[in-house]
Design a binder for these strands. Structure first.
Lengths: 229, 229
DNA sequence: GGCGGATGAATTGCATTCATTTTTTGCAGC
DNA sequence: GCTGCAAAAAATGAATGCAATTCATCCGCC
């Protein structure tokens, strides 16, 4: 007992300390967002247990959570399947997201600070760079970050959370729209207008542009899906 | 094997067949909505297990789900507490709900059918009756049903789901506002205007009235809470 | 008397086990 | 060869058990 041990856990760090539950939820969600697990595909618990090296108890808890978030569908006594989003469900999602985009626009325009502007502007320029270089995967990722950043400027955590949930549901279809290069160019042009409205801090204008951007993305996605099938 | 047995499970009924998981989730949520479990109160798993007569496994799954829905707060290794909604969190909820109210108004006005109108009108008149008789608990319940019904007219299931989630979070504070009888009268008057806009099928008008109604309810709730504390 | 640290009790996190339901496999009958 | 039932195998739902963490109590010390 002679040695005093310096404890460095005084600062809990709060990050990097993701619990197993949270890890499982986000990793499984990632599998579905990335498309590793296909829509409608059955998810045998045992296989996922081997995959993640955990027992069924925490895995099932994660499945229950993902069911609430709409990523998986639980069928009593018959296991879970990756929630099959059919095209008919895409429009309602975008419709709801449109309402949130509008609120984001209204509030972000009023609450945006100079630091916010600088940060989102940096993202915007990164987006432009990836577009010029044709790095579509990077573009898609940055696009996600751009809209998430806008949501955060709203200052409403619940709004952010809800918004990101919708984004993630839609995210599973992004590859479909990415193929549509003309849409990407149009999309970036719309971002340009969004940035202008944000810098000008004009709530109604920003809201309208975000809503329009959302609607156009929705239509492009529906067109792309229609082409495939 | 001589007797042919008529099987009546051809129609799965789909209702009344709530799984244990769903039952636990809704019953525990009810406890918190009703206020049986107070805000910030610790929830020992063992006690809830006794209460519901189940083991910890399904109960913990339910807790995880309720955490996602924002009703409980899970602290790693330290158990769950009833999510303490402080007044600062009320405004963001109403702000988000306002965006949904607007969407509900826009879409409901366009998609409402005559049957919808009849049903919601019946609710509306019931509301008026309970108001006259001063049955505030019934009024509150019917008020919830009224707004839920409006959301359903929108025809967007995801919107309904999200909307009801917000309503339930707020629901825990309804008793505070119910005390404010003048607000109830005002609220009903606003419902009258909402019904007029719905019958007239004027999207922008209905949306504006729902948004205003939402905002006034928010202010009334904040005032009531401020008075208490 | 108040405070800090140690020990035991209680609680949580996860793994394992048991019971029930579903799915698959096998076989008799047509 | 195909259909239909029956038993086996597999998967799910829930309970129990065990390790680890947290909480409560107690004791020594200032």
């Amino acid at each position: 007992m002679g040695d005093l041990e310096l404890r460095d856990d005084l600062l809990p760090e709060d990050e990097g300390e993701a619990s197993l539950h949270e890890t499982l939820v986000s990793r499984m969600r990632q599998l579905m967002i990335e498309g590793t697990l296909e829509n409608g595909q059955r998810i045998p618990e045992a296989e996922l247990c081997r995959m993640f090296g955990v027992s069924r108890t925490p895995l099932r808890e994660a499945l229950k959570v993902l069911a609430v978030q709409g990523f998986v569908q639980l069928r009593p006594n018959r296991g879970a399947i990756v929630a099959p989003i059919d095209p008919e469900q895409i429009r309602p999602i975008f419709e709801l997201k449109g309402a949130l985009e509008r609120l984001i626009g209204l509030t972000a325009a009023e609450r945006v600070t100079q630091e916010d502007l600088d940060a989102i502007d940096a993202l915007h320029h990164e987006l432009g760079a990836t577009l010029e270089q044709g790095q579509m995967d990077d573009y898609t990722r940055l696009n996600y970050a751009f809209h998430k950043g806008l949501a955060q400027i709203s200052g409403n955590a619940l709004l952010c959370e809800t918004y990101e949930g919708l984004q993630q549901r839609i995210w599973r279809y992004r590859f479909v729209v990415n193929e549509d290069f003309t849409r990407v160019a149009d999309s970036f042009a719309e971002h340009e207008q969004i940035m202008i409205a944000l810098r000008a801090r004009t709530p109604l204008d920003l809201a309208a542009r975000l809503e329009a951007h959302n609607m156009r993305t929705c239509e492009a996605m529906l067109r792309a899906i229609a082409q495939i099938s």
